[in-house]
Amino acid sequence: MEASTTTSASKTPADFLKSIRGKRVVVKLNSGVDYRGILACLDGYMNIAMEHTEEYVNGQLKNKYGDAFIRGNNVLYISLAK
């Protein structure tokens, strides 16, 4: 049996991060707080700049910010918003 290889299935984390720029994302911090908004940019240290940002604590909206900057060492994960 031959193994088939597909290049589209071998997407790197860097490819994913490039593909979500300008889209709505959820950024989960180590503290458990979520930030939801549009990913403006990020760097190699996972420092994140967001626009139209909302802060959620325990699933409840706590604050709204225009622009926000999150230090990368606080980030647990980043994902596309549903």
Score class of each variant (00 low, 15 high):
1 M>G: 14
2 E>S: 12
2 E>N: 13
3 A>H: 09
3 A>Q: 12
3 A>G: 09
5 T>L: 14
6 T>W: 06
6 T>E: 10
8 S>I: 11
11 K>R: 15
13 P>F: 00
14 A>L: 13
14 A>C: 02
15 D>F: 03
16 F>M: 11
17 L>Q: 09
19 S>R: 09
19 S>F: 05
21 R>H: 12
21 R>M: 13
22 G>M: 05
27 V>M: 05
27 V>S: 04
28 K>W: 03
28 K>G: 02
29 L>H: 08
30 N>A: 04
31 S>R: 12
31 S>F: 05
31 S>W: 08
33 V>C: 09
33 V>H: 10
38 I>K: 04
39 L>I: 07
40 A>G: 05
40 A>H: 11
40 A>V: 15
41 C>L: 10
41 C>M: 12
46 M>F: 10
46 M>Y: 10
46 M>V: 09
48 I>M: 05
48 I>Q: 02
49 A>M: 14
51 E>H: 01
52 H>A: 13
52 H>N: 15
53 T>N: 04
54 E>W: 02
55 E>P: 01
55 E>R: 09
55 E>F: 00
56 Y>T: 04
56 Y>D: 05
57 V>E: 13
57 V>D: 13
59 G>P: 08
59 G>Y: 10
60 Q>V: 15
60 Q>R: 14
61 L>C: 05
61 L>I: 05
62 K>S: 08
62 K>D: 07
63 N>I: 03
63 N>C: 02
64 K>Y: 05
64 K>D: 03
65 Y>M: 14
66 G>F: 02
66 G>L: 05
67 D>C: 13
68 A>G: 08
68 A>D: 11
69 F>C: 00
69 F>M: 01
70 I>M: 01
70 I>E: 06
72 G>Q: 08
72 G>R: 10
74 N>R: 09
74 N>C: 04
75 V>P: 00
76 L>D: 07
76 L>Q: 07
77 Y>H: 03
77 Y>K: 06
81 A>Q: 12
82 K>H: 07
